[in-house]
């Protein structure tokens, strides 16, 4: 018995197996909570199935994909998502860069201010959405009160038009995630060797020249990384939009994330929502590949 158990222990503790054994729990968890559900949902996208009925799934090849891709609403929601991604990520890049430039220099109360600027990023999406919902509220929201008191004398209802609602979502998302971009860029800025700036000073280079030849090349790769991260995250945007505008007015702010949610959990068109999810995944993979391709091209040009 002892020999058996010691045999098993020595087999178990064999240095050759130690590595695989150590990572096995993580792999099992990953399989159970990620890979298997992913494969399951991928399989379901080829069936006709509604999770709220007792009917069994019926194999239907690409029916769900065809159904989803031939409906106008997915193209509309993809367009809406693209507008929000372009607007929000663009705003985050500009503001994040400017804030990073500001915080790269030393000034009084810098650390305290930095703490305040970083705070939005640490809030939950739901908290941010509720905050902005109250901020935009026409009756007592700060924005409406300000416009009413100082500009028009009328209540201001930002979220009443498609353009206004899109701006509302973009501003809220940018407000939350600009600090993230700032942090990444700041990391690049502080890594720029001081002697380059000193040499530039000696050469009497203009501010713009210093920026384009020294500062920007150092932060470019981090900026691109920020674009990638924020684009992937914003393509999936759901909670902010769902709480702030509920996809409205009408369907003006219905992003692909909101549409997938409605299809899956309100309409219970389970197969269609799975197909939409994989179309979204495909879009994100294409975007990521494009990014990697651009990076590779740049690197090969630089070499």
């Amino acid at each position: 018995m002892n020999n058996k158990s010691s045999g098993f222990l020595s087999w178990f503790m064999d240095p050759k197996r130690r590595g695989p054994m150590l990572i096995a729990p993580a792999i099992i968890v990953l399989l159970l909570v990620n890979i298997i559900p992913l494969m399951w949902s991928f399989g379901l996208s080829f069936f006709k199935y509604r999770a709220n009925t007792l009917k069994l799934p019926k194999f239907s090849w690409f029916y769900s994909y065809e159904k989803v891709l031939t409906k106008d609403n997915i193209w509309e929601s993809l367009q809406t998502t693209a507008i929000i991604v372009a607007g929000s990520v663009g705003l985050q890049m500009i503001l994040g860069f400017l804030l990073a430039l500001l915080f790269a220099s030393q000034f009084p109360l810098r650390k305290i201010l930095l703490m305040f600027v970083l705070a939005p990023m640490m809030l939950s999406n739901v908290a941010v959405a509720i905050y902005f919902k109250l901020f935009y509220e026409p009756e007592f929201g700060l924005l409406s009160q300000f416009v009413q008191t100082y500009i028009t004398g009328e209540m201001y209802v930002l979220l009443s038009t498609p353009a206004g609602a899109l701006i509302g979502v973009i501003v809220a998302d940018a407000w939350q995630w600009t600090p993230f971009v700032m942090l990444l860029v700041l990391a690049g800025l502080v890594s720029v060797p001081k002697h380059l700036y000193e040499a530039a000073e000696i050469d009497r280079m203009s501010w713009w020249r210093k920026f384009t030849t020294i500062t920007f090349p150092y932060v470019r790769s981090l900026l691109l990384l920020a674009v990638l991260f924020r684009t992937i995250e914003t393509v999936k945007i759901f909670d902010l939009v769902f709480i702030l505008t509920n996809g409205g007015p009408g369907t003006a702010t219905e992003t692909i994330g909101v549409l997938v949610y409605r299809t899956a959990f309100q309409f219970f068109r389970t197969s269609n929502s799975a197909a939409m999810g994989y179309i979204l995944l495909f879009a994100v993979i294409v975007l990521t590949s494009l990014y990697l391709y651009v990076i590779k091209q740049r690197e090969s040009e630089e070499i």
Partner: peptide
């Protein structure tokens, strides 16, 4: 209901 609510909302917010 959801589709109807979305369409009514477009009308309520002056889009159609």
């Amino acid at each position: 209901l959801t589709q109807q609510q979305e369409e009514f909302d477009k009308a309520i917010t002056g889009q159609q």
